[in-house]
Design a protein around this nucleic acid. Structure first.
Lengths: 251, 251
DNA sequence: GCCCCTCATTTGTCCTACGATTATCGGCCT
DNA sequence: AGGCCGATAATCGTAGGACAAATGAGGGGC
């Protein structure tokens, strides 16, 4: 469509800025970011995904860069390509939501209470079980990391440091302590999503993270009491879920 | 150059065989598969990862193909590349285990009871919660799919059809019915891994899948009884875990 | 009217060249 | 002699052109 070249002029500028703003080590990862964000925000739900030639021209990069970015999107399940047919955006059910990039694009650009609730529905499955495993499996270093996270949370209650990062540190340390690589893999996912989640829950009512409840989890793990750890963590995240529920009752 | 067609037959190493055997739609995905398998099997734990030029030469493909394959590996977290420094395999903790390709490479090539146990430790977190959600959220089509899976399992008990695929169908249907895209995303992961898991557990003692326990889960979901569904599913996977535990007690 | 065939479009693959980055080595200054 | 510094080369990053392969679409022949 000739419409593209001219009519998307504004859109292109918008994109270019986005690509330029990201301090990307190379053009390919910049393209990956730009295209990824565009896809998850639904830009191609109506119009078809551009061809390699169109992308290259619109962004002023070589076809090599374009192809490599598209291949990376393919690897993350966002698109699929066939000769003569062009590249097509895959249905959202194919997207790899456990990829840190995909999740970041989603949360940065398409944040919704709905998405936040679904994510915490996942957390309430994962983290209590991870806490139970950690109670059994943890080594000294793991426990030290958990307690360090808790200590930082206490410090931030007095205004020292970033409460968000402290909270993330705590939850990530527990996932790590589970000793299970599948849980460990969720580190980046949980970290990415907590940045959105906590920012939101803290905004609701000056709601500061409940340190006592966090301490209960840490103590249960230290005592190697898996059932208590599971229950404590479940309690912790259950609170977040009800908080979200009261704010936006599901349809 | 027309000789490319012949040139693939040169005295190549064992790699070529692997690449040639994979019925891949294109060279890039063949390279992706070859390199991915080589990485997860630990081929580069001792030696360094080859440069783009070396890979291209060894496999008789162009540098473009090599680069695109490496980019896809990067997107899946297996490697990272820096100028002059070459491409390096990332520590296993960075690999995206929730990527269907990565998981398949791992299970096909590096199967171990340890890995199987860790995977089922993940299942026991996910699936009971998914069943509980499904009990609340499921629509008619979801329930029909779950019951179809159950029916196929019953049919296979009489020798009709593949029991493995029926079991997979059942579990996947429940994940789908949860209505949560994060759980839905685990479809491919669970399907891939169950193919290894069930094949193994069935081998232990002519152990055929317990249909009564599966039916209990389905009934609880149909009755919209989340707690009962969660407990029933937990029971189901707990059995598998103890089965694995008896066979290979953890170190 | 139906079938086959040509043609155009788009991804797939190859190639060559050059730019950017940085580890390494050799020489120079102190 | 030892440490600092610049040249060097290896490697990924980017550009751009050419052709192959696949495939949907439309035109020509019967």
């Amino acid at each position: 469509m000739g419409e593209r070249t001219k009519a998307t002029g504004i859109g292109d500028i918008d994109w270019e800025i986005g690509a330029a703003r990201t301090a990307s080590p190379n053009l390919t990862s910049g393209m990956l970011d730009t295209l990824g964000k565009a896809i998850v925000t639904g830009r191609y739900e109506t119009r078809r995904f551009p061809t390699e030639a169109e992308i290259s021209k619109a962004h002023g990069v070589s076809r090599s860069v374009t192809r490599e970015a598209v291949k990376m999107l393919t690897a993350k399940g966002l698109v699929s390509a066939r000769p003569r047919q062009g590249t097509a955006v895959q249905p959202a059910s194919c997207w790899n939501l456990f990829d840190a990039d995909v999740l970041r694009w989603l949360l940065d650009r398409k944040f919704s209470v709905e998405l936040l609730r679904q994510f915490n529905e996942l957390r309430i499955a994962i983290e209590p079980e991870a806490a139970a495993l950690a109670a059994v499996q943890h080594g000294e270093a793991d426990l030290a990391a958990i307690r360090a996270g808790l200590a930082r949370m206490e410090a931030t209650a007095l205004g020292d440091g970033d409460p968000l990062e402290a909270d993330i540190m705590f939850h990530v340390a527990i996932l790590q302590a589970s000793g299970n690589p599948f849980y460990g893999q969720l580190r980046s996912v949980v970290a990415t999503a907590l940045r959105s989640s906590i920012r939101f829950t803290n905004r609701i009512k000056g709601h500061t993270a409940n340190i006592a409840d966090h301490a209960a989890v840490a103590d249960a793990i230290a005592d190697r009491a898996p059932d208590r750890a599971r229950a404590a963590m479940r309690n912790l995240i259950g609170d977040v879920l009800t908080l979200i529920g009261t704010c936006a009752p599901q349809p």
